[in-house]
Design a protein around this nucleic acid. Structure first.
Lengths: 97, 97
DNA sequence: ATAATTACTACAGAATATATAGTACTACAG
DNA sequence: CTGTAGTACTATATATTCTGTAGTAATTAT
């Protein structure tokens, strides 16, 4: 098997990051929704992770036009590309955990 | 898609862990070999990760009988189960990075 | 006997993560 | 308007984790 580089592995090397991607795969969400749905995450951590995900172009951050306050987060194409990785983790988990 | 639990995601939520598994998938190795082959890892970190991997039953730690000093690390069946996850990361990386 | 190698561990400082509290803004009720 | 509640965060201090460096104890090689 061809090896994954450090840079490649580092994208996934974070628990919250995977959790956020997983949640957004079920539908776009606002900051507060993510806060509610991801139990145990602090606003600081959530904000930091969202920032990194945006920088890496895995998620998109957009203001809703109707409501001046709401900002919705959604997966980019690249972000969707992570989903097969998550389903392989599932396969692993079902078999061994 | 069925979601991965926190416990499941945490197994992979670490860069060095994935790197070690990747190296061991190419053949069993000793501590010093891993140290050489994984550039940038400190002995402290390597020892800690190996310990965690052993506790989680992803790798096996065995004394070689011929040589009283050498200890070889190898993947368990469960450890091999991670490899499809790594190849999905590769697929992602090839496409988007 | 001496040097090198093995598999680590101890310790301290650096980097990172997190909780708590708070800010600035909007929305809506009375 | 005035007050209460909700939004999307940020500031700060602390807690936790990571990492580098040095060193140990036990082989093995010369």
């Amino acid at each position: 098997m061809k090896k994954c580089s450090a840079k490649e592995l580092k994208i996934l090397g974070d628990f919250w990051t995977l959790t956020i991607i997983q949640e957004l795969s079920e539908g776009n969400k606002r900051f507060s929704e993510l806060e509610r749905v991801i139990s145990g995450i602090s606003p600081t951590t959530l904000a930091n992770r969202l920032k990194k995900l945006e920088i890496n172009n895995l998620i998109k951050r957009e203001k809703e036009k109707i409501d001046k306050l709401s900002i919705i987060y959604s997966l980019t194409n690249k972000g969707h590309g992570i989903l097969p990785v998550l389903s392989q983790i599932r396969v692993f988990a079902d078999k061994y955990l």
